[in-house]
Design a protein around this nucleic acid. Structure first.
Lengths: 141, 141
DNA sequence: ATTTGTGCAAATCGTTTGCATCTGA
DNA sequence: TCAGATGCAAACGATTTGCACAAAT
């Protein structure tokens, strides 16, 4: 029985996905995308992904990780978020949702939009538009 | 008519305030506290305060600014907040409230708790406690 | 052939720290 | 006196950038 990682998207899936958003499917982007979208939704830092890549014998520089992460974010494949000054995390869940933030550990956990009801919001200042509403529930852990 | 800055708290006010929270009212802490609490609520970065101090002929090092800001925060005189990775802002408003975040300019603006009604929140994970709920309305400006 | 991406190392930015020197109580 | 503060410069960690090289179209 062959040992295998769960749910790693196929090369062609990833390739399509990159092409679809207009990014050249290079070796490293493909490899990183496969890692990122392999398991369920995650919150990864550049450093995390760098280590993970090394662990999987993927040879990428940290600069390339940052580039890829930003490119993916710009194209809507990822969502960047930073709470406190603990660096940037990239969330593979790009749908509308919120977060628990565990203050001690710095860990993040998704909260579905259904679990938070905001019944009234102030209107955006005249001439402006709301881009997004982020709710962060900070947890004393 | 003497030109004067509005609402700068008196030396004795500031002195009392510092003593009350157990921080020695040193020359620089006094001066910084006076700047910080002079006008209404504000969101200042360490750098902002540094420049402001220089502009007012207050001789403090940046390290001291950071120390003071953190000390004040630890004692509840300020609240630290960071959105995106634009560094830390210190909010002179320590009461429960939320923020507008203007994405282009990086500016922050307070939103009173009354202006946002959250009707349902998920329970905190077992054994943990909610420290605070932060709502950030991101504005495309 | 052309354009776009990558790697590396150096540069930058915000923030922190070590340590010798001051200063308020 | 003497614990607590300050200033400075060096150290830091995260992120960005400049540029020569490599790979994708």
């Amino acid at each position: 029985m062959v040992k295998q990682k769960a749910d790693i998207p196929s090369d062609s899936d990833v390739l399509e996905r990159l092409r679809a958003i207009g990014l050249r499917p290079t070796r490293q982007r493909m490899a990183l995308a496969k890692l990122l979208f392999a398991q369920g939704h995650r919150h990864v830092s550049a450093e995390d992904l760098f280590k993970e890549a090394r662990a999987n014998d993927i040879d990428v520089s940290l600069a390339t990780i940052y580039n890829a992460l930003h490119d993916f974010t710009a194209k809507g494949l990822l969502r960047a978020l930073s709470v406190d000054s603990m660096g940037t995390y990239f969330d593979t869940n790009t749908s509308d949702h919120h977060h628990f933030f565990f203050e001690r550990s710095g860990r993040l956990e998704d909260i579905g939009t259904d679990d938070i009801q905001i019944s009234s919001l102030p209107r955006a200042p005249k001439g402006t538009e709301v881009s997004r509403v982020d709710v962060i529930i900070r947890i004393k852990d």
